[in-house]
């Protein structure tokens, strides 16, 4: 065991483990159910991963600064409700409004965390409750179907461009911009610095508070985008639409190899992590796991995946 972990400790090997796991999983599913690697299923896979990936990308920013955002499911659901409510009256303008709501509540989470100095776990748990309540209020507690009229402006999301689902392209654009923002902007470098060591970042003159609030704002905005896409795909908005997506999104970030303590990781790793999560989910159906037992397999694979991919040399104390 010791020897094995020593072998994994070399930097580049550690970074290569999640992609290797992804390839391995694809091979396992392909062997278990030949025909998995056809264009149609791959399109389906990418389409299904898109929403999870966008949510996970948002959380990546927050986890990188050493925090956590538990409000994304509520923000995504609220965005879906706003979209479904407003599409009939103001048409495509509903998109920016819904996404702006995510921005606002992301900033709110950030401000509560930074100004009131409430730990992000509690702060976002609370703002998540606030947002979920508002979604329930706006929707009067029910799911809202997007009617024929509104569906005209959402059909493009469900289409394909030369065989690739539009949602996958949207996810790729979001991923690319986030990747650039993290790697080539001052904000990106500051985020990594804050996550790696807050006192050092402060001493270096980084505006820690602003960096944190921006990270939460991005997380909220991306959560709202994910909620809008989800609403367009399902042709409905509901206060509980994204409730099952919070923990898989966080799992995607960690399985991809981003350290939960912050300061190490990135969007590319999250993309791999999201694909791993989604292949395990879809693969179980292909391989023929009993539908009631799917969660058992998923939980076990999750633990194994984290045990393999996590970089222990960067985490001083495992809590």
């Amino acid at each position: 065991m010791k020897k094995l972990s020593n072998m994994f400790a070399a930097g580049w090997v550690q970074g290569a483990i999640p992609p290797a796991l992804l390839v391995l999983l694809i091979i396992v599913v392909e062997i278990g159910s030949p025909g998995f690697l056809t264009g149609e299923t791959l399109g389906l896979l990418l389409g299904n991963t898109a929403v999870l990936f966008i949510l996970a990308t948002g959380v990546t920013f927050v986890i990188l600064i050493g925090g956590i955002d538990l409000s994304i499911q509520a923000v995504a659901s609220l965005a879906s409700v706003i979209l479904a409510q407003l599409l009939p009256s103001i048409g495509p303008l509903a998109f920016p409004v819904a996404i702006a709501s995510g921005l606002v509540f992301g900033i709110l989470s950030g401000v509560v965390h930074v100004r009131l100095r409430v730990p992000s776990f509690v702060a976002t748990l609370a703002t998540g409750g606030v947002v979920a309540g508002m979604a329930l209020l706006f929707a009067q507690g029910r799911a809202i179907t997007i009617e024929e009229g509104g569906r005209l402006s959402t059909t493009w999301i469900n289409g394909t461009v030369v065989g690739v689902p539009v949602v996958a392209i949207l996810a790729a654009i979001v991923g690319l911009i986030s990747f650039m923002a993290l790697r080539y902007t001052r904000f990106g470098r500051h985020s990594l610095a804050v996550g790696a060591g807050e006192p050092a970042a402060l001493a270096a003159g980084i505006n820690v508070d602003r960096t944190k609030i921006i990270a939460f704002a991005i997380s909220g905005t991306l959560a709202a985008i994910a909620g809008v896409i989800l609403a367009a795909r399902l042709s409905s908005g509901s206060p509980s639409l994204a409730n099952q997506l919070l923990l898989p999104a966080i799992a995607a970030v960690i399985v991809g190899g981003t350290a939960i303590t912050g300061g190490l990781g990135g969007v590319a790793r999250t993309a791999v992590g999201a694909l791993i999560i989604s292949i395990v989910r879809i693969g179980m159906t292909f391989v023929g796991v009993n539908i009631f037992a799917e969660n058992v397999v998923f939980g076990a694979v999750l633990i194994i995946a984290v045990a393999i991919t996590i970089d222990r040399s960067k985490i001083p104390v495992i809590k």
């Binding site: 960690i254 998923f298 939980g299």
Partner: peptide, 17 residues
């Protein structure tokens, strides 16, 4: 040696499943 957040998340799914 997995953070409890992830270890117990996995066990949550196993238990519920």
């Amino acid at each position: 040696r997995i953070p409890s957040f992830m270890a117990t998340l996995g066990v949550w799914f196993i238990g519920l499943g």
